[in-house]
Structures are given as structure tokens and as C-alpha cells.
Design a protein around this nucleic acid. Structure first.
Lengths: 233, 233
DNA sequence: CAATCCGTGTAATCGGTGCTTACATTCACA
DNA sequence: TGTGAATGTAAGCACCGATTACACGGATTG
């Protein structure tokens, strides 16, 4: 397994020295400079264009203007590239979720739960292909201790705490929180999945309706578990 | 995939007419007999072994004992083969659903709804890879008028009628049936998807628990929409 | 029965793909 | 200033989907 000696460069990129001495030779320099980054971006673009299946190492190399073998200096396999792509998508997803949560009311755990669900759904529907590659775990490296598992564990813990708080404050009328949590996740995940799997046309949900329907469905679920049978927003 | 072994099908050169006149059914006849069927089965088996990605026309041909080009007499492309595979899986799924429904109580629409959901989940969890290929619509031929769309439309209509009946009988405490229907589908689909996408390990759900958890989650949803806050089974 | 048609198999081949190896170039640092 | 490590290229392997030309043989005819 060659080329596995590149993890340091993946750490918050901007520490790259200007390798090209001030003068710019119009001809492409022998060394690309930041091929790893460019390959991930090209792959992300390919995912956006034709789904995960449409990503080929050669095409990514082609778009990066580099020979077909070059990517293998940075990724030992196509799966490793997809892994990096998935981690990048996961990073963006996580950032959006955290931004949404930071703007959520602090004293209303059920409201925060709703806010989290909405942010999840909105991101998933705005970035369907990115969501696809982070949702099916086959693009993550299960052996290596990547940040993905940790990210997810944190998110799961977060919702667990939200629900526990909500229950403690008397916002819920059901006590089996683990069940509520899994059901909620299944609902939200299922909705996002139905979107990217192309189910909505046959459900009479158009793209314009999808966002509204997502909100409706989430509210229906929350009404189902909330103590007060009224609107929870 | 490794090179494997290429068994020399016919070591003889061109000077071998291979007379196979009426008398030898033991040796493989020139015409296979039911290659289409065998190819679909082989592909289904491949799906079961390594997911949809693991299906290759050549491997299916190899397992059917025919040359790599033979399958293209029956399927114009790999996608067409996958299409047939998906339709076969859909057929089996549909059969199981109908069997479960025929054994469901007639006078209790909400109970029938639950029964349908359970049958859906059980089949999806017992045949994860088959469920995968019928759930993401990319393996269906969207142009041709296949029975799949009709199947799904019928299933959707069926649940719609169930819910309408349940509401008419006063079993539901919510009136927006379309929303209930989509939420229910999202919940069930999401749960099945979480299973095949490998989410359960990080949710503390093991294979043994999965069936029980599926039932729990489905019941939680039904409790959320049912008028009487009791168990609905 | 014999001739023929045509559905269905084989063989050879093409371009695309992941991946490896050998070699070339350049950067970073002692 | 030299030198090794990092990172690019070139060539080539096996497998893949797909196409084409040809071979076989069952079914339909006269």
C-alpha cells in the first residue's frame, strides 16, 4: 500500500508553502501543487453530475490536467478517493447542521430537535448527491479511525440529549426515548432518501413542494410524540 | 476482481465442427435453452453476494456457462439486465406483501396498515440487497411502461385507502391523510434503508434486535397518529 | 424430405477503467 | 551544493461493457 504517507497535508489546508517562485511559467509546472485537493473537488463535481457511480479516477485526473496514474500518488485506490470525497461532504454537512443549531432557541429542546431535523432535511435536499455518498456508509473507510464515525456519534448523542431534556421538561408524552430517536431518524432519513432515490414523483411531490412537505412531515412526527396536541412550531 | 481462471472452453482450433447431433443432451447444447432466466438468477445471486455494483454481465455469463457476448442477445445493455433483476425482485416483494395482507384482519384498517408496514420491513430486512435494487429507482427503466410503476402506484393507493378507512372509522386523530401517508412511508423506508446502509451498528441496533426494533418504531408511529393512545396491535 | 430462415450461441475486437511498475522531475533540507 | 523524498509521467496489465462477423441448429416451409 504505497502513497499512504499523506495524511498531514489534509489538516486544514492553508499551510501550503508557495512552491512556485514568484515567476509564473505559463507552461504547467511538473508538480501540480495541490493535486489531492483538486482531485477531491473534481470527484465531488462528478458526483454532482452523475452520482457516485460516475466518478472515475481517470476522469478526475483528466479534469485536473494530470496523467491517469497521478491520483494514485495521493489515493491508494478509487475507494480511498471516494472516502475522501465522502469525508469532505460530511464536513460540509456537519458545518451546516452546527450553524443551524447555533441559531436555534436554547430553552426549547423539542424546538431544537425540530430545527435539527429541518436543517438535516434541507441540506439533504439541496445537496442530494452529496447526501447520498455520506448516507450509504460504503464510501467510508471502516477500518481507519476517520472523523466520520465520531461526527455521527456526536450527532446521535446530541439528539439523545435533546430528547432527554425535552422529556425532562415535560414536552413529550412518550417515555421510550431510544425508540423516539430511532423513529425520528428513520423518518428524516427516509424522507431524504425518498428524495434522492426518486420516489417523490410517484408520490405527487414535486421539487417545489418537497421543502414544504418535509416540514409538514417533520411536524406530524413531532405532534405525534409531543405532549400538547397542538402545533409545535 | 482478480484474473481468476479462464477455463479453455474449447481447446481445439477452427478445425472442429463440434458435431453435436441429436444424441447428446448431457454435453451443453449449442443453444442454452433459457439463458435469459438463468442470467437474471445469476445476477440476483451476484446482487446478494456483493450488492448491485458487483453485478457484471461477464460474470453472469460465466456462471451461466456462456460466452461474454451471449447475454447481449437477451439484454441490450447491463442496465437492461439490472432492470430485469429489479423487476424480478419487485415481483417477489409484491408477492410477499400481498400474502401478508391477505392474512390481515379485514375490519381493522389501521391494523392492516400496521400489517403492511411490518411485512414491508420484514421483507426489506430479510432481503437487504434485493430491497436495495428495488428501492433506488435507478435500476428501473423509466421510459418503458414496466409493471413496476403500476405496482407501486397500486401499493400507494392501497395505503391511501387504508388510511381513509381508518379515518372514517375514527381510528385516527389527525386528518391530513396525505401527510400521514408520506410520513409513514418515510419512516418505514428510512428504517429499511438504515438497515441496508449500515447505520444500525452506530445506533446500537444489532441484527437480532432489528426485527423487534422495527416493530417498536412502527408502533410508535401508529400510536402517534391513532386516536386511542394505546397499543394498536 | 430438403431448403431455408432466423433466433441464439461464439470469437474477436474496441475503448474505458482501476491499478502497478519503471522512470523523470522537482522540492526540501542537511 | 548535493541528495533523497515527494510527486509527476509513460507504459502496460486485466477486467469490463459493448459491437461485429460468423457458426450453429430448431422451426417453418415447399
Amino acid at each position: 500500500m504505497p502513497a499512504a504517507s499523506k495524511p498531514p497535508a489534509a489538516k486544514a489546508g492553508p499551510a501550503k508553502p508557495r512552491r512556485r517562485n514568484a515567476r509564473a511559467p505559463a507552461a504547467r509546472p511538473y508538480h501540480h501543487g495541490d493535486l489531492r485537493r483538486v482531485l477531491i473537488d473534481a470527484a465531488l463535481q462528478l458526483v454532482g453530475e452523475g452520482g457516485p457511480e460516475a466518478v472515475s479516477v481517470r476522469e478526475a485526473a483528466r479534469r485536473a490536467g494530470v496523467s491517469p496514474g497521478a491520483p494514485f500518488r495521493h489515493f491508494p485506490s478509487r475507494d480511498a478517493l471516494m472516502n475522501a470525497v465522502a469525508e469532505e461532504a460530511q464536513r460540509r454537512f456537519r458545518a451546516e447542521i452546527e450553524a443551524a443549531l447555533s441559531a436555534a432557541p436554547a430553552g426549547d429542546p423539542l424546538g431544537r430537535f425540530r430545527c435539527l431535523g429541518l436543517a438535516y432535511l434541507r441540506w439533504a435536499m439541496k445537496n442530494p448527491t452529496h447526501f447520498e455518498i455520506i448516507s450509504s456508509r460504503r464510501f467510508f473507510d471502516h477500518d481507519r479511525a476517520s472523523g466520520v464515525s465520531q461526527d455521527n456519534a456526536e450527532l446521535i448523542d446530541l439528539t439523545e440529549r435533546m430528547l432527554a431534556e425535552a422529556f425532562a421538561q415535560g414536552q413529550l408524552r412518550v417515555g421510550d426515548l431510544k425508540r423516539v430517536q430511532i423513529a425520528g431518524r428513520a423518518l428524516i432519513y427516509g424522507f431524504a432518501r425518498m428524495n434522492i432515490d426518486g420516489h417523490f414523483p410517484r408520490w405527487g411531490v414535486t421539487g417545489a413542494d418537497a421543502g414544504r412537505t418535509a416540514e409538514d412531515v417533520l411536524d406530524l412526527f413531532i405532534e405525534g410524540i409531543a405532549k400538547v396536541p397542538g402545533k409545535s412550531a
